[in-house]
Design a binder for these strands. Structure first.
Length: 469
RNA sequence: GCUCCUGUAGUGUAGUCCGGUCAAGCAUUUAGGCCUUUCACGCCUGAGACUCGGGUUCGAAUCCCGACGGGAGCACCA
């Protein structure tokens, strides 16, 4: 049985990089008809928070990544870690270390001066001391010679010399287990067959493999994913805009689009760009993961999001639009059906935030017309046609695309002007700006009453302008 | 500093394992055009890359060596 796990630490929110890791784990488990486990690595009691746990859980559910087991909290498993630690101490696989923080610092500084890699020098490794009352940590007795070969599914065989590794702390002075120790026990206990995680863990892997050996358990199969960098090539951080996955929800992205964008960062299937979730699961494989770091590009995410907006079933987008209209405070009580808005605006908005923002004038009055648009479109020459248009639209009984179009066409032909000459002023009058969906669609969405009112206002503006000339 | 990973257009990638079909494909970005009553969508055309230097070979993006660049790790953080 293939079992993967996503093991975030709640010392921070769920960010894009972690989501990509989670996605690959999730996809691989699904692809193999295996299981996916969510484990919360909260051994750092100081920095782990309940809020971050919530952020992670919320993010996972928004993205639609379900798990077969979990969330399992490491803090619930301390007994188990202690059991192993005690056992290792008895078997001589681990030892007590009494070195103080100062001593360790001094040791590292010396190594640095000598141009060596900083690591624990094994001072207490063979100490025959048993006074358990003093403050001490437990260290793992790492083999001194030989090498560890990590057979990575992405990197190939990576070799580490044991003498490059040091005796890492597995239990702190306060009795809490450290990350590398807890991970190994968990992955073993939970029968994780494949560990898929960020590149930054590659250097931890040989020590973990050594601990699996000490445990007498086969290590899982590892895959180390290339990192995701910001668009400037530096590590992805707040500087690059949103990092918290929830920010992407607030910005109006569709979860499937985010997954689709992320899956193409470090994985590919020929030239294909767009994958629905089913396809992703079907086509995903570890052997197609590539090895170099990728830079995050919001341009492409935006493009993909629009692709999803344009091709999704309109009904499925209604909740999204509703959510974002509420978010930016649009009163939806008086205006068109959301589904009509979606159909009119989906190909001119990249996100739901943009769409909500763009359709505001269909629901609420606006105070100001763009001055540039006034100057260009609401000119005295158009006064008569606008008045004529107003009187016709006023008489319309069935406010439909066809009839609105007929009115506009009629006025255009009476005054012998082309559509653009009357369409743009009309658009500016009813929307306040110079870009909107086709004019009949726009008017239809805005409704007859509002259209007439706004037309009257525009006519007043034009009149005033004519007088002042 | 040491250890490990990595290097195809601005960005993501195909091709690299098993040299020739690659005078390097696709997508995004970008420039121009078409469509169009605006914006967008769509369509067409263009710009833009094998990090560099050696070597092997009839032939190298692909194999070998070196340099340089980028990233990560070296905690009683995860």
């Amino acid at each position: 049985m293939i079992r993967t796990r996503f093991a975030p630490s709640p010392t921070g929110v769920l960010h894009l990089g972690s989501v990509r890791t989670a996605l690959f784990c999730w996809l691989y488990a699904k692809h193999c008809d295996g299981q996916f486990v969510l484990r919360i690595e909260d051994t750092d009691k100081e920095r782990s928070t309940k809020e971050n746990v919530n952020a992670i859980l919320e993010g996972m559910s928004w993205l639609g990544m379900d798990y077969d087991e979990g969330p399992i909290f490491q803090t619930d498993r301390f007994e188990r870690y202690h059991e192993i630690a005690k056992n290792w101490l008895e078997l001589g696989k681990a030892y007590r270390c009494y070195c103080s923080k100062d001593e360790l610092d001094k040791m590292r500084n010396k190594q640095k001066e000598k141009g060596e890699k900083t690591r624990y020098n094994g001072h207490c490794r063979d100490l025959k001391r048993n006074d358990s009352k003093e403050g001490f940590v437990l260290r793992f007795k790492n083999p001194l010679s030989g090498k560890v070969v990590v057979n990575d599914q992405v990197r190939g065989e990576v070799e580490f010399e044991n003498h490059e590794l040091d005796d890492l702390v597995i239990v702190r002075t306060d009795g809490s287990p450290t990350y590398n120790f807890a991970v190994v026990i968990d992955d073993a206990d939970m029968n994780i067959s494949h560990v898929i995680r960020g590149d930054d863990h590659l250097n931890n892997t040989p020590r973990q493999i050594n601990m699996f050996k000490a445990l007498g358990v086969n290590a899982p199969i590892y895959s180390h994913l290339p990192m995701i960098l910001g668009d400037d090539g530096a590590k992805l951080s707040k500087r690059h805009g949103a990092v918290d996955i929830r920010d992407y929800r607030e910005q109006g992205f569709i979860p499937e689009a985010i997954l689709n964008y992320l899956v193409r960062l470090g994985w590919s299937y020929g030239d294909q760009e767009v994958f629905n979730t089913e396809e992703m699961i079907k086509l995903f494989d570890l052997s197609d993961i590539n090895q170099s770091a990728a830079a995050f590009s919001s341009d492409k995410l935006l493009w993909l999001n629009q692709e999803y907006m344009m091709h999704a079933r309109a009904e499925s987008l209604v909740p999204h639009l509703r959510y974002h209209m509420d978010l930016i405070g649009i009163d939806r009580s008086d205006g068109p059906e959301l589904i009509e808005v979606i159909e009119a605006y989906r190909e001119r908005a990249e996100t739901f935030t943009q769409m909500a923002d763009a359709c505001r004038y269909c629901y609420e009055e606006f105070d100001e017309i763009d001055p540039k648009a006034i100057k260009k479109q609401l000119r005295p020459v158009i006064l008569e046609p606008m008045i004529a248009l107003h009187s016709r639209l006023k008489l319309v009984e069935e406010w439909s695309h066809e009839i609105i179009n007929a009115c506009v066409n009629e006025v255009a032909s009476i005054f012998d002007i082309n559509m653009g000459k009357i369409g743009q002023p009309l658009r500016v009058a009813v929307t306040g700006i110079s870009a909107s969906p086709p004019i009949h669609v726009t008017l239809c969405l805005i409704g007859q009453e509002r259209t007439l009112k706004r037309l009257e206002r525009a006519i007043e503006i034009i009149k005033k302008r004519a007088e002042s000339n």
